[in-house]
């Protein structure tokens, strides 16, 4: 049973469980913060885009394209190593939070915008014909429908991006992977890595199952 001893060493588990639990808290807190700010910012961008002011639209599309096309780790490293040189000192967790929020915002903007363009012309006309203003139709009629259509892809994207909090280990954020990696080199055992995997499972398996349920639940009926 060398296998068990290597990956499930009881002494190592007992020793590092408290650290891993603290790290889980950090991963969770970062994830929640990223999801909230990413989705809110993405919704604001999609809303602004619907006003069809050309320079503004171009800026939004440029932002969304860049953040969707660039590997997040590249952006994280550029900010982490570059910003101090221009006199901006940011703690490692803030860089991680900022980059992943922006990436989620870019995807959320595209999802909301696709939803807004899918709201039929008739819905807009019905709203405007009853005397509602453009902004009122946008917030009361178009956005709620775009939101519903967007929930399944949004949930999947939010999950994929919050899992990227593991990238924090590269710049020293004390999240699960980072804590497990240093525990692994201290203890000379692979067990902390197993613990990290289990910790992620505890967080994300329920999330993945919930996302399946949401996908079925929000299948839009008209």
């Amino acid at each position: 049973m060398r296998f068990l001893e290597t990956f499930f060493n009881g002494t190592v588990i007992a020793k590092y469980t408290p650290d891993i639990i603290v790290a889980m808290g950090i991963t969770l807190a970062l994830s929640v913060a990223i999801i909230i700010s990413g989705i809110v910012f993405g919704a604001v961008l999609a809303g602004l885009r619907s006003f069809q002011v050309r320079p503004l639209t171009l800026l939004i599309v440029l932002f969304a394209d860049l953040m969707r096309a660039l590997p997040p780790l590249v952006v994280i490293l550029i900010l982490f190593f570059g910003l101090p040189s221009v006199g901006l000192l940011m703690p490692d967790w803030l860089v991680l939070y900022l980059v992943l929020s922006l990436v989620l915002a870019a995807f959320a903007e595209e999802i909301f915008w696709a939803g807004l363009t899918a709201v039929t012309r008739g819905q807009w006309e019905a709203g405007r014909a009853t005397g509602l203003s453009f902004t009122q139709v946008l917030t009361n009629i178009a956005f709620p429908q775009a939101w519903r259509m967007g929930i399944p892809p949004l949930v999947n994207r939010a999950l994929a991006i919050t899992k990227m909090t593991a990238l924090g280990s590269v710049i020293g954020v004390k999240e699960i992977l980072s804590v497990a990696s240093s525990a692994q080199s201290f203890s000379g055992s692979a067990t902390p890595l197993t613990m990290a995997a289990v910790a992620y499972m505890l967080i994300f398996i329920p999330a993945v199952i919930a996302s399946r349920w949401i996908e079925r639940r929000f299948h839009y009926k008209t």
Partner: peptide, 20 residues
Amino acid sequence: FRALPPLVLLIFVYSGLPFA
């Protein structure tokens, strides 16, 4: 495998498996 962050998986394969 959808629940496990890819980087965790990579570290596990790269640094964990040699122990076995």
